[in-house]
């Protein structure tokens, strides 16, 4: 499965991703409706893009009282709009705070990979976001960890 991988150190909090996401999904430029959000710590110049990671054991799906949150065959965790009653239990269950809510539609929403072409990734000028296969992401994480420990590249 492909996932959005975040290179936190490259993020400049320009928030193009938030605008691209809300525009492609809701037809409006509104950061609060974006499914990817930048957590900013301006004083410390630390910016962290936050987006659904489609957990293996997803707490949002477990808690959903109408089985509206289901894993798709491609691996993504998806909110089925016609089953969602807007109770927001998934918002309280998500430890990352990345389950969002659309007041207009009255349903919860998370990253849906824009049908395979995530617009946040397309518009991320600094290159902090990439859309990659999870196996590649795991390899990258291992390389980073090895580098941190001063080990040679495998």
């Amino acid at each position: 499965m492909k996932q959005i991988v975040v290179h936190q150190e490259k993020c400049t909090a320009c928030r193009e991703c938030e605008l691209a996401c809300s525009f492609s999904h809701e037809n409006i430029f509104s950061p609060t409706l974006s499914r990817i959000r930048i957590a900013d710590f301006y004083e410390e110049q630390f910016y962290q893009p936050m987006v659904c990671v489609h957990c293996a054991d997803a707490p949002c799906a477990a808690v959903c009282p109408t089985v509206a949150i289901q894993r798709q065959t491609d691996g993504q965790i998806k909110v089925l709009d016609d089953r969602c009653i807007g109770c927001k239990m998934c918002l309280l269950a998500c430890p990352f705070g990345v389950m969002g809510f659309s007041p207009e539609k009255g349903v919860a929403h998370n990253c849906d990979f824009c049908d395979g072409d995530p617009q946040c990734v397309q518009f991320c000028t600094p290159g902090a976001l990439e859309f990659k296969d999870v196996v590649a992401i795991e390899a990258l994480a291992k390389q980073k960890a090895a580098a941190a420990l001063g080990l040679p590249k495998a």
Partner: peptide, 14 residues
């Protein structure tokens, strides 16, 4: 508050 703000309660929950 509003609908979207409740997402932070998930973070506090964990």
């Amino acid at each position: 508050g509003n609908e979207n703000g409740a997402a932070e309660m998930g973070v506090i929950h964990s």
